[in-house]
Design a protein around this nucleic acid. Structure first.
Length: 581
DNA sequence: GCCGTTTTCGGCCCGACTGTTTTCAGTCG
């Protein structure tokens, strides 16, 4: 029997486990890091690892060399990895969960295991409560308390936080910090500033001469559950909602290097440091240092990059995905900006499950600065949420026309639908109904868990239908909640490139679908993108910042995003698609 | 284990913070 097909995540998880166990075992750290790097690479691949494997291109993936590619080969062809089974015999696999406890690293875990026979979380908690760890070297009452608090916070933790939840919290903290006397600059850093779809901790950076007042303001916020650490430069807190935040305070004249450093990503910084070393310089969060020890201070980030002969680059690009080379060659992309969006092509009204009438939505769109809005209510198979039958589509036409007449040229309102790609692959309206509409989005909502072949074929039916203009939230994933449908994305992208259909970047922070990696691939293949809110009420109109951030992380320029075009050009694009019918 | 416009061997970021230490080890980012 063939082994069950493994997803990128499952393969990545295997190598994380290998890294964890090797680290506890005491393997040299660089070998451990190599497995972690390979794991991250697989997760960030943007392609199905099985396809890359079949093509024999595994070693083209950064961080995957001979040894790991052979292990992937074994894993994908047999579903097992003898190397892992062998380590499991030496190191209890349940120690990996102990490693998850904050402030416990491989050394401590190994110590507890070898000296106190602890092999899992339950054992750790029991031994800690019984005071059995106190006698071990390096252990004391505070460490005990930390372990118990760590186990508790682990049980509360839900993994990474969606960007859209963390951002407003961080924004509020910045407002508070900027208000402290002596603060010259305060910015977000880390994955938050790079606008990753999920973030670990909230990282903040302040430029001020005196750190004490800033630190006090930070740890003294009303929503702080506990202070995890407090020093002159760094302090960190856990909030009552479980989020963690950390703050760096540096003299304003060193703010640039510190912000660059704290923004990361780690891989981007490693790359930049390599560049520095080649020029006989070393780069730290404090300064650029010459070989003779003299420091060059940078108050701004631009000065840091300029010193190495690079243009400043937007934080969304800093993932070591070729941005430093692009900066060296002077061909960094000119990224799309939120203010350039002129249309919203995916919105709902009271004709399906929206909360606003067509007129309310149109007025809100106008207020948000848009020149065009497509009302794209659901089709009828989505019965539970009041999708429109064919009769309703035609009735709604008259209302849209009436609102258009009333509002005149101030905003263009398109007749649209979000037609369901049904479980059998058929679209929810006959072609002649779809042909009557200005714009058609096709989306998957049901039966997302169908086998790859079936769900991919459904998507192809939609992409190849000449009436379909945009594929809505293509993979169906929900950030940190639901895995994407098991689509063969190579096939989907190829078909989209062929048909000229646009792929959506759904801007809802719970979707961000396409994600950044897929967006970049779409651009490389010449597939147009569309950043839409999927607004179900007037408040959601204009809330595109996370969608734009995702596009920027995918290196999108204005040209690539159809709803940043002037309405005239967009309408012409839609008409040309009509000519294909 | 990976990688290569100083390379196929020898690097791979390093500094802050904490708790236990009496000068340092472990963790984290």
């Amino acid at each position: 029997m063939l082994p069950k097909k493994m997803s990128n995540r499952e393969v990545a998880d295997v190598f994380q486990l290998v890294a964890d166990l090797l680290q506890i075992k005491g393997e040299i750290i660089y070998k451990v890091l190599a497995y972690r790097k390979a794991s991250d690479s697989i997760l960030d691949l943007g392609r199905d690892i099985n396809v890359v494997w079949r093509e024999g291109k595994l070693t083209d993936v950064p961080g995957i060399g001979k040894a790991i590619s052979e292990k992937i080969d074994e894993l994908l062809s047999t579903g097992e990895l003898q190397f892992l089974e062998k380590i499991k015999k030496e190191v209890p696999v349940s120690l990996a969960e102990v490693l998850e406890v904050p402030d416990l690293g491989p050394k401590k875990v190994a110590l507890f295991w070898k000296e106190a026979g602890i092999s899992d979380l339950a054992g750790l908690e029991a031994a800690t409560r019984a005071g059995e760890l106190r006698s071990l070297s390096g252990m004391g009452p505070k460490s005990e308390a930390k372990i118990l608090a760590g186990i508790e916070s682990l049980s509360r933790r839900t993994g990474r936080t969606p960007l859209g939840l963390a951002w407003p919290v961080a924004q509020e903290m910045l407002v508070l910090l900027r208000d402290v006397k002596g603060v010259k600059a305060a910015e977000m850093a880390g994955s938050l500033r790079r606008m990753r779809e999920t973030i670990g901790d909230i990282d903040l950076l302040v430029g001020a001469k005196d750190s004490a007042a800033v630190t006090e303001a930070f740890v003294g916020q009303p929503n702080v559950a506990r202070v995890l650490g407090k020093g002159d430069i760094k302090s960190s807190i856990e909030l009552t909602n479980g989020y963690r935040a950390q703050l760096w305070v540096l003299p304003p004249e060193r703010f640039g290097t510190a912000l660059q450093y704290a923004t990361g990503s780690k891989d981007h910084n490693v790359r930049l440091r390599e560049l520095a070393l080649k020029q006989g310089l070393s780069l730290s969060d404090q300064a650029i240092t010459r070989e003779d020890g003299t420091e060059i201070l940078c108050a701004t980030e631009a000065e840091v990059y300029e010193y190495f002969g690079l243009a400043w680059m937007p934080s969304e690009l800093r993932e070591d995905r070729g941005e430093i080379q692009a900066a060296q060659n002077g061909d960094l992309p000119v990224l799309i900006e939120q203010g350039q969006l002129r249309s919203d092509l995916h919105t709902h009204s009271t004709w399906s499950d929206g909360k606003g009438t067509i007129e309310e939505m149109a007025r809100a769109a106008k207020k948000a600065g848009l020149k065009l809005i497509a009302i794209t209510d659901h089709s009828h198979s989505i019965g539970v949420i009041g999708g429109m039958d064919v009769k309703a589509v035609r009735k709604r036409r008259k209302e849209i026309e009436a609102v258009q007449e009333k509002m005149g040229k101030s905003i263009r309102i398109l007749q649209g639908v979000e037609v369901e790609i049904k479980a059998d692959g058929q679209l929810d309206y006959p072609d002649e109904v779809l042909a009557e509409l200005d714009i058609v989005i096709a989306s998957l909502h049901v039966s997302l868990r169908q086998p790859r072949k079936k769900v991919t074929q459904r998507m192809l039916n939609a992409i190849q239908n000449p009436n379909v203009d945009i594929i809505g939230h293509p993979t169906g994933r929900l950030v940190a909640e639901r895995e994407p449908a098991d689509l063969d994305m190579d096939v989907v992208f190829a078909a989209a490139a062929e048909s000229g259909v646009a792929l959506e970047i759904n801007a809802n922070f719970k979707r961000l679908d396409l994600n950044d990696v897929y967006s970049r691939r779409a651009i490389d293949l010449g597939i147009p993108l569309s950043i839409n809110t999927d607004a179900h009420n007037t408040d959601m109109l204009g809330k595109t910042e996370y969608g734009v951030a995702t596009a920027r992380r995918g290196w999108a320029e204005q040209e690539h995003v159809i709803n940043s075009w002037q309405p005239r050009r967009l309408l012409s694009w839609l008409r040309k698609r009509d000519d294909r019918k």
